[in-house]
Structures are given as structure tokens and as C-alpha cells.
Design a protein around this nucleic acid. Structure first.
Length: 281
DNA sequence: AATGGACACAACCGCAGAGAA
DNA sequence: GTTCTCTGCGGTTGTGTCCAT
């Protein structure tokens, strides 16, 4: 794949996983749990690097992962969330039951972009979250953290400036998995949620309450092209309009969360407008 | 049946953030 | 306050599969 391997250790396997490797990984995690990815391969008897094990588990082997085609409702939700959050796939995945960030990312790149273009909508790049700028190599002899600190507090002349800290509402993503509980009559069906372990990479407000991570999704039908309005965003979603899951799994959204997400959207919008002004000057 | 291009997806890689030392 | 390690995220790429010729 054209790049230097992340794990310089020789003798490690790469490429597709065999069923034997899968079962070794599953057995180990079932017995000892997730985490300690670096030491896991050795302990589990796998000739893989820890990152590879983690990825295989998180994206493929973990129980509750839904595979197969995306429903139209899931597509709708991805488009809406992408218009709001940009390429923050983990956050988007946290709101789609059983879907992984990798899967959503792939689906977006291979299907949804095309579909949007066919519908006459040009998917907008999300400049604010493009990491390429922030991933420039630091000057020689300076650590990245130092670079980051400097860029936050100093202007181009090295003067200390008061930087307005833009708070982005990025609650800890939750992976909503459809755990269907039935009583003996198979009539009552309930849904439970599980949290995923990922941390946010963004300036976070201290949400704290698990309740704020809940998402309400109620029935609503929308045409695909209806998803985005002129600003590339559908306000109805933010304002708590309802939404239909084909699998009839309903989860609840908290008003507070909607307000925060909307706040975030306005902040992002104002940043984009400022950028455009600067470009026009 | 063979071949080549397009597509889909699993997996890799570099980087950043958090926390420990 | 600094350095190091671990973990997770998002962009990118290699490879298998499908389909048209």
C-alpha cells in the first residue's frame, strides 16, 4: 500500500484476516475483554499488530455490528448528519445502530456522493474538519504539541493573543445497537443502547449526563433530494423533526442535545461565512 | 472463455489527543 | 512542564468481484 508499515516489526502478517485469526481474536477478547491492543496480539497468539487487531474487532467482529445494505432511512440520516458534522465518521456512526465509522465512510465515498450528485446536490467539503492543514510537519526541533500550543495562543508575529475558544458540541459518541428484547409472547419489543468507547477529538462541553446522548427518531418520510436545503442543511432535523427507521427501532432525542447541536451548526456556519469573506477580500 | 475497467470494501497508515510516568 | 505510550480517528490504498466487451 505504498507506505511504511505502522509496525516496523518484521514477521507480522498483513492483509485480509483468516477465519483462524478471527476466532483467535474473538476467543481472546471474550475471555479477557477489549483493550491493551499492543500486547493483545502476542497474548492471543496472533502475528498482527495491535492496531490491526483493534480495527478488525471494531469494524468486523464485534457483536452487534450490522452488515449489508444501508436502508434508505439510514442513508437519509447519514446525509443529514454529514451535512451537520462533516467527515466526523465516528460521531455519525454513533448515531446509526450497528454501523461502524469505517463502513459509513466507505458507503459515503462510494454511494452517497454519487447519489447526491445525481440529485443535483454537490456535497460540500467540510473545510473546518480537514486535518491536512493541522497535520503539517512541525519545524525541526519542535514537538507537535508545542506547535499546537503556539498556534493556539500566538499570532504570526509571535504576539500572545486572546483566542476565542469555539466550543463544539461533540458528545461522547454512542454506538446504538438494536438489542431487541421480547417477552414470551413476542409482542413487546424494546431497544437498548450501548456506549462506544471512542473519545471526541474536539473541544467538548462537559456534557456529563448520559441522557444527553440520547437520540429521538420518529417516523417521517422524505425524498432524497429533500434532505439538503440551500445551505446544504436540513433544519428540520435539528429542530427535532421526526425520522423513520425501517427496522422500527426508536430511540429518544433530548431537547438539550438538539439545542447544542444547533448551536454547533450556527458556529460552523459563521466560521464558513468568515472564511468566505476573507477569500473575497 | 479471456480480458480489462469500474466498483466496493477491508485494511493500512499517519496523526492527534489523553493520560501516565 | 515535558516526554512517552496507548488509543482512536479519518484519509487513503490494495485487492477481490462484477460486468461489459
Amino acid at each position: 500500500m505504498g507506505r511504511a508499515p505502522c509496525c516496523a516489526k518484521e514477521g507480522l502478517r498483513k492483509g485480509p484476516w483468516s477465519t483462524k485469526e478471527d476466532s483467535l481474536l474473538i476467543n481472546y477478547i471474550n475471555q479477557y475483554g477489549e483493550g491493551q491492543w499492543r500486547s493483545l496480539p502476542k497474548n492471543a497468539g496472533l502475528l498482527r499488530c495491535g492496531k490491526s487487531c483493534r480495527l478488525r474487532w471494531v469494524n468486523y467482529l464485534k457483536p452487534g455490528i450490522k452488515r449489508g445494505n444501508f436502508s434508505e432511512d439510514e442513508e437519509d440520516l447519514i446525509v443529514r448528519l454529514h451535512s451537520l458534522l462533516g467527515n466526523r465518521w465516528s460521531l455519525i456512526a454513533g448515531r446509526l445502530p450497528g454501523r461502524t465509522d469505517n463502513e459509513i465512510k466507505n458507503y459515503w465515498n462510494t454511494h452517497l456522493i454519487k447519489k447526491l450528485k445525481n440529485a443535483g446536490i454537490e456535497p460540500k467539503p467540510h473545510k473546518n474538519f480537514n486535518k491536512k492543514e493541522s497535520r503539517k510537519q512541525p519545524e525541526k526541533g519542535k514537538s507537535r504539541k508545542k506547535e499546537r500550543k503556539k498556534s493556539k495562543n500566538e499570532n504570526s508575529k509571535g504576539q500572545i493573543v486572546q483566542v476565542e475558544k469555539i466550543k463544539v458540541f461533540a458528545p461522547k459518541p454512542i454506538r446504538i445497537s438494536c438489542v431487541i428484547c421480547r417477552d414470551k409472547s413476542f409482542e413487546n419489543v424494546t431497544l437498548s443502547t450501548t456506549t462506544c468507547s471512542s473519545n471526541s477529538n474536539f473541544e467538548e462541553e462537559d456534557v456529563g449526563k448520559e441522557k444527553e446522548n440520547e437520540v429521538k427518531l420518529l417516523p417521517r418520510d422524505l425524498e432524497f433530494g429533500e434532505l439538503l436545503n440551500g445551505d446544504g442543511f436540513c433544519d428540520e432535523f435539528l429542530m427535532g423533526e421526526s425520522y423513520n427507521f425501517s427496522n422500527k427501532c426508536l430511540v429518544e432525542i433530548n431537547d438539550n442535545m438538539v439545542e447544542k447541536v444547533y448551536e454547533e451548526y450556527l458556529l460552523l456556519l459563521s466560521e464558513i461565512q468568515e472564511d468566505q469573506k476573507e477569500q473575497n477580500c
